[in-house]
């Protein structure tokens, strides 16, 4: 463990909690892409199958359990409890495409052709693009509530901090997982224009309205 990965995990945890608070307090999931949340749930489910077989640490296990539980809780809130507030007509990104491409890539490019390793690789590729429906939805509606932009900032920062973690691990531990690194770079890259808008607007108290 290193400080970059710890802050990254805390940022990821904060994003998930911010989203749950937003939906629970406002009793609404308006502006939230249910498709992205479905993809994140698939990411955690495929990646954490080793929850009971591969014990890394108490921290690792508790975080995995929390991420799994919170992602299922989030889709429950979106598609069941507050489904009347879900903007289905704005959440129109073809996310099936993201799943198919991630499956094909995971079958072609992986570290080992085994079930758990291919599912892990699939979860890495899928996570890199899972935010696209949410970013697409914001460009479609042209704006985002400030709490949603804080959620996105925390979520985008987490993988950016992981890149620093991978640089640290490469030089300090000689550890390198180029599949995770390349996917993490793509994932963080997708947030670039959002980060620019967040820093130039939301940080100054303005709303996140995209130039139409």
């Amino acid at each position: 463990m290193n400080v970059f990965r710890l802050i990254g995990d805390m940022s990821h945890l904060a994003a998930i909690i911010i989203l749950l608070i937003k939906i629970w307090r406002s009793r609404s999931c308006s502006g939230i892409s249910g498709k992205s949340q479905l993809l994140f749930t698939a990411v955690f489910t495929c990646r954490y199958l080793d929850l009971f077989t591969n014990f890394v640490s108490i921290y690792n296990t508790t975080m995995k359990i929390f991420f799994l539980a919170s992602s299922y809780a989030t889709i429950y809130l979106i598609f069941m409890k507050f489904k009347a507030t879900y903007n289905r007509n704005h959440d129109t990104f073809r996310f099936e495409l993201l799943i198919v491409v991630s499956v094909i890539l995971a079958l072609l490019i992986n570290h080992e052709f085994s079930a758990t390793e291919i599912l892990w690789t699939f979860s890495i590729y899928l996570e890199a693009v899972a935010i696209l429906p949410q970013l697409f939805m914001i460009t479609k509606t042209g704006e985002a509530e400030s709490i949603t932009s804080h959620y996105l900032f925390a979520l985008g920062s987490y993988r950016g901090l992981y890149i620093l973690n991978w640089i640290y691990r490469y030089y300090v531990e000689g550890h390198l997982d180029w599949i995770a690194v390349l996917s993490g770079i793509v994932q963080t890259g997708l947030y670039c224009d959002f980060f620019y808008l967040y820093i130039t607007r939301v940080m100054k108290g303005k709303n996140l309205t995209l130039p139409a």
Partner: peptide
Amino acid sequence: TVSISKHDEL
């Protein structure tokens, strides 16, 4: 190199 048997990151 990567130790695939133990993906120790979240």
